[in-house]
Design a protein around this nucleic acid. Sequence first.
DNA 1: ATGAATGGTGTACGGTGTGCAGAGATAAGT
DNA 2: ACTTATCTCTGCACACCGTACACCATTCAT
Lengths: 220, 220
Amino acid sequence: MVARPGPKRALSEDEVLNAALALLDADGPDGASIRKIAGTLGVSPNAVYTYFSDKSSIEQALVERLLGELNRDAVSRADWREDLETLALDLRRRLTAHPGAVPLLLGGPMNGPEALQLGERLLEVLARAGLPEQAAARASYLIMIYVLGAVALEVADVPQAGALEPEASRIAARRAAMTQVPSSMFPRTAAAVDVMAQWVGTEQYVWGLHRVLDGLAASR
Amino acid sequence: MVARPGPKRALSEDEVLNAALALLDADGPDGASIRKIAGTLGVSPNAVYTYFSDKSSIEQALVERLLGELNRDAVSRADWREDLETLALDLRRRLTAHPGAVPLLLGGPMNGPEALQLGERLLEVLARAGLPEQAAARASYLIMIYVLGAVALEVADVPQAGALEPEASRIAARRAAMTQVPSSMFPRTAAAVDVMAQWVGTEQYVWGLHRVLDGLAASR
DNA sequence: ATGAATGGTGTACGGTGTGCAGAGATAAGT
DNA sequence: ACTTATCTCTGCACACCGTACACCATTCAT
């Protein structure tokens, strides 16, 4: 860290990211504008460009930070399925805590250091599961697709901005909405309303993950 | 259709959607602005509001239309796994043909008539596969998660707007980028670069789908 | 002390969605 | 045929957005 000329910085990259995340949580996916970030930090909009070159780099950094927090708790037990389930549940919990940030994850390639670290962890667990290298590489992508896809659909199911309501409330709202589907046009859907209302629940999430892991285990 | 007072409409909802889709294809996810749509239709921006109440309803209608085209091709009643594979490949082909429209699918709940129709079709095939009602309802969601998640990640992997390059080019670009990964920090990733470059390919897509279907078949 | 590099501000440009007022066209009611 | 209600489309305006540019104040190396 070499001292540079110029005034001391009044803020830090982290403070910018904190403000951005808080705004995403409060106002939804489009809530973290440069101007609002600057406003909550008590600074002029262009001051933000001192810390990040443009808005997309703020979003990338935010994604990396969220993945970094995940990577910091690396719990490795014996059973590979248990490990993957823990990891998947952890990722879902952290992402649904910030629904406004989820679109950022799917807005660009997963090629940052923390994303790579997450991939590396997956490969490690899958190798321990006995999958050969090629199958492990493919399996890790399948798992990422499942986790990110499930979270994306879960978040997309809620129209309004702000924090997600408790699971039970969201399921109840889904059930109420789905009872309106006409059984004459969609008989199977109408008959399965109770199950489909629970699509956004933890139980369905784990069930789907288990089906994926079953499919992977069978391919060994 | 009762005749109403007022001048004849110069356009139709469909023309608006055509213009929007063309702009999404040309300029990426944010390319379909109200002003650009109006511009390509040779009309003032606010004229668009005659056909759709706001921008989000244009996006919803566009999603519905894409799903509607998919639903118009009925699945051949063969083996259920074959049917699902055909459906999944069809959906992927249609969505990757319009990468700019993919974020719209994940931007709101899948509750339109065509989305329900797609769900109904999935339930039908899964019932034919021998899954009881509850399992079929859960399985249909798992399949949607897989298909939409895979397409979302595939599209997100390409940074620039416009049509997707051929699969081989995208894989080659991924391989070139991934060979930069330091094997000291990410040994397993670096060792699996060749496989991971092909994550965005049809073969991986089918492989993942087969793992999902294997997991579903085992749960019967 | 001076020059160079940096942080932050203010202004400005082109873009966005969309609310509002009004002009012209059309059909229904008389 | 005339009025009236209703609809389409335009033009203007507002409040935002990301960010490029010029400028000043601060700080360090020399």
